[in-house]
Structure formats: C-alpha cells, structure tokens
C-alpha cells in the first residue's frame, strides 16, 4: 500500500536537504511538495518497477517509513541496482518538482519568477579590455 507518508519518505531519502555548500540550506523534498503532486510522482508509470522494488525490499510502505534512515537508503540502492532506468526516472521526476520549487530556488539565491519579462542585469562592456588582444595582430591563417 502506498500513501503520502511513504512517498514523502522516499522523496526525503532521495533529497534530504539540510546545509549544503556555499551557504545553501534547503528543506527535504518530502516536506516541500504537496500531497497531490507527491501521489502523482510516486505513481508515475515509468518509475513503477523501482517503486515496487523499494516496497519489496522494505516489506511494504509502512515498514519502509519505519526503517532507520540508513536502511531506507539501502532499500533505494537495491531498487536502483535492479531497476536502473525506472529508478532514474523516479529521481529525475522528483528533481523537476524540487529544483523548480520557489523555496528551493530562493535557498539557492535565485528568484522564483520566470526569466521574462524581468530579465537580469548584466554588467556593461569594457572595450579597452580587448585592446591588447587586438594588438597581437592577425592570428588567422593567411592562405594567399
């Protein structure tokens, strides 16, 4: 049996969050993604074999949730080893939900608004920087 708790626990095992490099601190995936989206993710057709393998390895959804963190990771590794393609799909689909989430973008110091219409500021251009390059003279192969 699959439920919200199972899906959230799988998600948080794949993306546990916490303090990362460069001052980035992100929440775990299970706490971030809403229930309906999480249910759709765990039921993804192309990831089915991996989810079933996780359930088999753990002895069911409830048992997986109650496992210690290290054992949960072991169960995922078994699924990954046996059903690589389906497991990659599970991971990829979760990454899409997670790394496009406004909270995660903000944690990485990036705005959640789309690229347009705001765009971004970019420093101007200093032409003098290239004077020394030009002064080297031609480097193209003169074929005459």
């Amino acid at each position: 049996m699959m439920n919200r708790s199972f899906a959230a626990t799988v998600a948080s095992t794949l993306l546990p969050g916490g303090e990362l490099a460069n001052g980035v601190d992100v929440p775990c995936a299970g706490r971030l993604i809403d229930e309906a989206t999480m249910s759709q993710w765990i039921a993804h057709d192309d990831a089915k074999a991996a989810v079933e393998a996780i359930l088999d390895e753990a002895g069911g959804a409830r048992a997986f949730v109650e496992l210690p963190a290290a054992r949960r990771a072991d169960a995922l590794r078994v699924a990954e080893a046996g059903h690589g393609s389906a497991f990659d799909k599970l991971v990829t689909e979760l990454f899409k939900l997670y790394y496009e989430h406004p909270t995660v973008l903000a944690a990485f110091r990036w705005r959640s608004a789309p690229p347009q219409p705001e765009g971004h500021d970019l420093k101007g251009f200093n032409e003098s920087r290239f004077e020394r390059v030009a002064a080297r003279g031609p480097i193209w192969r003169n074929i005459v």
Partner: peptide, 15 residues
C-alpha cells in the same frame, strides 16, 4: 548529477 541522489548529490548542485 543523476544518477547520484541523496545529500551528496545536493551538495554537488550547491557547489
């Protein structure tokens, strides 16, 4: 970073 996952994969992204 796929197929990597877990905290190590997240650290790689933040780096």
């Amino acid at each position: 970073t796929v197929p990597a996952w877990g905290k190590e994969a997240q650290i790689m992204v933040s780096e």
